[in-house]
């Protein structure tokens, strides 16, 4: 052989059967996006501003019309203006502010813990075989158990205070974030793995430049599911066991037959849910600005 030293990857003098090295990456759908814009006619077309509010507005109008025409029993469903009036009253009382803040705090703590745990576990499990062996099965087992079914056990363990509520919310949040991020991490296109080898990327650069950005779309799917989950579990938790919060407020209202207060609570849950989802969508569109997908 005449050539000087060559890179180990290509200079296998006496090349023999090479055993499996490292992990294999399954081909997935991530990383293929950005090309969808070509057949414009199949896309739903440009989005008009604030179109997402049209549906709720129509619904509100129907509700108001039905109430005004006395088609609805005010004991079963209060009229929209009654709901607004009640909201104003509760607000000036100061009880609404307390309840809203308590609920927000619970949701925020639970969500933050769930988000951190979901991302950390997905990274550990998605980037190392040992991590996957330890974590993936366990999370899937956890997923199979309905989280709200854990409430009695958690109350016994953590007491009836705030801790158990936050723990339940965190569990509801971390599962979809873990699942989607992990799927995206292990679904990195094998062609990009090949590219990384050809370009001589080391493992860290490979993860930073290819694996993580490629997994971000999946992460955002999980993030939005987790966000919805945090509000959902909050409603349940605060109705089961609380001394303050929106759910508590609604639970009390039920005892006095005050549908207007119940509706105020539902309305606030709805507004928060929509607002937080919109915020995540906005961040997603910024971060994934390279995507030319249907949502643009």
């Amino acid at each position: 052989m005449t050539t000087s030293t060559a890179a180990p990857a290509v200079s296998n003098a006496k090349t023999k059967q090479v055993p499996e090295t490292g992990r294999t990456w399954r081909t997935g759908r991530t990383g293929r996006t950005g090309r969808t814009g070509h057949r414009r006619s199949l896309a739903p077309g440009k989005r008009l501003p604030a179109t997402r509010l049209i549906g709720p507005a129509v619904f509100l109008a129907l509700w108001a019309a039905a109430s005004a025409a006395h088609l609805l029993d005010p004991g079963a469903i209060a009229a929209p203006w009654t709901v607004l009036e009640t909201a104003g009253q509760l607000w000036t009382d100061g009880t609404l502010t307390t309840d809203v803040l308590t609920s927000l705090e619970r949701a925020a703590y639970g969500f933050a813990i769930g988000l951190t745990a979901g991302v950390a576990l997905a990274l550990t499990s998605g980037l190392s075989r040992i991590g996957e062996a330890l974590i993936d099965g366990t999370v899937n087992l956890n997923r199979a158990i309905p989280t709200l079914g854990l409430i009695p056990l958690f109350i016994l363990w953590l007491g009836i205070g705030e801790t158990f509520k936050i723990a339940i919310i965190a569990i509801v949040v971390y599962i979809p974030i873990y699942l989607n991020t992990h799927a995206a991490l292990s679904g990195i296109d094998s062609r990009f793995v090949e590219l990384a080898e050809v370009q001589g990327l080391n493992r860290l650069t490979f993860i930073r430049r290819i694996v993580i950005p490629g997994a971000l779309p999946g992460f955002f799917v999980g993030l939005r599911l987790g966000l919805t989950g945090s509000w959902l579990s909050l409603v349940v938790l605060e109705q089961i066991n609380a001394t303050s919060g929106l759910g508590y407020m609604m639970f009390q209202a039920q005892n006095y037959g005050r549908t207007d207060i119940i509706l105020v609570g539902l309305l606030i849950y709805g507004v928060f849910g929509l607002a937080s989802d919109s915020a995540v969508r906005l961040i997603e569109r910024r971060v994934l600005s390279w995507r030319r997908s249907l949502s643009n």
Binding site: M1, T2, T3, T5, A6, A7, A9, V10, S11, N12, A13, K14, T15, K16, Q17, V18, P19, E20, T21, E194, E197, V198
Partner: peptide, 19 residues
């Protein structure tokens, strides 16, 4: 290119460093 991990093979192969 040195991309054929997991392929059964034999022989000698020399290639430059920067490929």
């Amino acid at each position: 290119a040195g991309l054929d991990h997991q392929v059964v093979g034999s022989g000698e192969l020399t290639a430059p460093e920067r490929v």
